[in-house]
Computed example of a mutant assay.
Amino acid sequence: MTKSHYQAVLLSSLILGFMGVAVDFAVPSQIPEGIRNAESAHFAEMSLPRLLFGVTLSLTSIALVLVATYGLYRFRHWAPRLAVLGTATSLLAGLAGGLYVQSGIAAILTFVASYAWGASVVLAYAQPYRAWFGVSNQPLQATASGGV
């Protein structure tokens, strides 16, 4: 795999993810009205602190993932760790948000985007791709002062 291939996988995860989110807004008829009403009722019954927590966590995860995507695309040394943090934050946001409804097409697009994102994050830690990010392949050495 070349750097260009890696960047293509990374960008495909971003593009497919946005498509997965946008498809249900663009074509709302894919989700039956009754199911949409149930989702709306779920959010209406959610307490304000939980709703604010979920929204804050979601916006934070979006920001982290977008910055991490830039860093991964530009092969910055800090990007793999930020990508893991953004991924963990988005998983927590999903749990905090509770029930949500997606059409089948949106689910497929977001699943494939998630797989491509996961591959991008894992490859950033795998040999030999790890060197692209300026991460040393050597184990950490203790210094004379006892630190790392």
Rank of each mutant, 00 (worst) to 15 (best):
His42Ala: 07
Phe43Glu: 07
Glu45Ser: 12
Glu45Tyr: 11
Met46Tyr: 01
Leu48Pro: 06
Arg50Asn: 15
Arg50Ala: 15
Leu51Gly: 11
Leu52Thr: 15
Leu52Gly: 14
Phe53Gln: 14
Phe53Glu: 15
Leu57Tyr: 05
Leu57Phe: 04
Ser58Cys: 13
Thr60Val: 10
Ser61Leu: 06
Ser61Trp: 02
Ser61Ala: 10
Ile62Arg: 09
Val65Lys: 09
Val65Trp: 11
Leu66Arg: 00
Leu66Ala: 00
Val67Glu: 02
Ala68Tyr: 03
Thr69Gln: 04
Thr69Ala: 10
Thr69Phe: 08
Thr69Asn: 04
Thr69Met: 03
Thr69Gly: 06
Gly71Trp: 09
Gly71Glu: 02
Leu72Gly: 03
Leu72Tyr: 08
Arg74Asp: 09
Arg74Ser: 11
Arg74Gly: 04
Arg74Met: 12
Phe75Asn: 06
Phe75His: 08
Phe75Val: 08
Arg76Glu: 14
His77Met: 15
Trp78Arg: 02
Ala79Met: 13
Ala79Ile: 14
Arg81Asp: 15
Leu82Thr: 07
Leu82Gln: 09
Leu82Met: 12
Ala83Cys: 03
Ala83Arg: 01
Ala83Val: 05
Val84Gly: 11
Thr87Ile: 05
Thr87Asn: 05
Thr89Leu: 08
Thr89Asp: 10
Ala93Ile: 01
Ala93Pro: 15
Gly94Ala: 03
Gly94His: 01
Leu95Cys: 15
Gly98Gln: 02
Gly98Asp: 03
